[in-house]
């Protein structure tokens, strides 16, 4: 039996509300707004209150997929990562670094955005990186 309350930050709008995610045995069961968060002070909107519902949805992607014969098929991580890295390398060699473009994301963390732009700039050698700040 494991009951956990994890303090974290909302993934929806830019307010950055704090709340506790309640989980029992690894399953999310509830959301409780943090009273000590400087932003929301114990309050949440309708989206925040229901944030635990989508996380463990059965439709989540749980395995890497690679398109083979026109269909996306489940593959191992090794295969997916090798395929991706090889393809990217081939395209860079054939058409230059600026033939590759990256979408960073307003939905992932700072650390992940940092790594992606570092890979684009230092790894691939292009500044073709943008995200949907404008949308």
């Amino acid at each position: 039996m494991e009951y956990k309350t994890t303090l974290t930050t909302c993934p929806y709008c830019g307010c950055g509300c704090g709340f506790y995610l309640e989980s029992i045995d690894g399953r999310l069961v509830g959301t409780i707004p943090s009273k000590t968060s400087p932003v929301n002070k114990g309050k949440l909107c309708i989206k925040g209150w229901n944030v635990h519902e989508f996380v463990q949805h059965p439709n989540r992607l749980t395995r890497p997929l690679v398109r083979k014969n026109g269909e996306l098929q489940e593959v191992s991580w090794d295969e997916a990562l090798d395929y991706t890295a090889d393809k990217l390398r081939n395209i860079k060699e054939a058409s230059g670094p600026d033939s590759i473009a990256f979408f960073a994301s307003a939905k992932v963390s700072n650390e992940e955005n940092y790594l992606l732009q570092k890979f684009a700039r230092a790894g691939v050698g292009t500044n073709n990186i943008d995200h949907c700040a404008r949308l």
Binding site: K4, C10, V39, V55, Q56, R60, A80, N110
Partner: peptide, 30 residues
């Protein structure tokens, strides 16, 4: 051509920066 399954906010550690430039912790719950 390739789909890589990442994780949601509830399954990771890291930080978000909110609209008032406040850097906030994200903590893995599950």
């Amino acid at each position: 051509h390739v789909v890589l399954p990442g994780v949601s906010f509830a399954e990771k550690d890291g930080t978000f920066s909110n609209t008032e430039r406040r850097v906030l912790k994200v903590r893995q719950a599950v």
